[in-house]
């Protein structure tokens, strides 16, 4: 099994950290992982993206031009990456602020209104974990216990008290994601 994922959105949305938690979760499941961020100017206000590869085998190229899954969290990302999903692949997007929705017929498109949902939760910073939950509902490539172990690994100890609220967010994401016809 090899899953090649791009996560893209605004800098500050937690794109890179969501990728990191995914990579850590894969590692906790004894899989090979690679995490390649866009770095530099994008991090400061523009768009940010990260390529995460989780595989049973040694990861070859960390740079890709097509993806099994695209998780797209703003309009620019939808515009840029929709065409780069492999035929039969998966596109997950947050509807917040989207005016031109993804429309390909040869891929599966799921929508998750995580920004709205995060606003209802005790802390809106769980946004990216809601999205992650939604994705894992569709493609359960890592087990929940490994996501929690991954969270623990990637968060500094001073934030470990936030693990339960993040777990709740992942579960909430699993509930609210839906397929767009």
């Amino acid at each position: 099994m090899t899953e090649e994922i791009i996560v893209a959105g605004f800098g500050g949305q937690g794109v890179l950290s969501m990728g990191k938690i995914l990579a850590y979760s894969g590692m906790m499941q004894d899989m090979e992982v690679s995490w390649f961020p866009s770095y530099g100017p994008e991090m400061r206000g523009g768009t940010a993206n990260v390529t995460v590869i989780i595989s049973d085998d040694r990861v070859s190229s960390p740079v890709l031009n097509e993806y099994d899954t695209a998780i797209l969290l703003n309009q620019q990302s939808v515009d840029k990456f929709e065409s780069m999903v492999k035929p039969g692949g998966l596109l997950v997007y947050d509807g917040n602020g989207i005016t031109t929705h993804p429309s390909r017929k040869d891929i599966k498109i799921f929508r998750i209104d995580a920004a709205d949902e995060a606003a209802k939760m005790s802390t809106s910073r769980t946004f990216n974990m809601i999205v992650l939950g939604g994705y894992l509902k569709i493609k359960p490539i890592v087990k929940m216990e490994n996501v929690l172990a991954g969270l623990k690994k990637s968060l500094p100890p001073r934030y470990h008290h936030l693990i339960p609220v993040n777990e709740e967010a992942v579960k909430r994401g699993m509930e609210i994601i839906y397929e767009v016809a």
Binding site: K20, M27, E32, V33, S34, W35, F36, Y39, V59
Partner: peptide, 10 residues
């Protein structure tokens, strides 16, 4: 280079 410098792997 910046790629191997920035990627995270096991």
């Amino acid at each position: 280079d910046g790629l191997i410098g920035q990627i995270m792997e096991k």
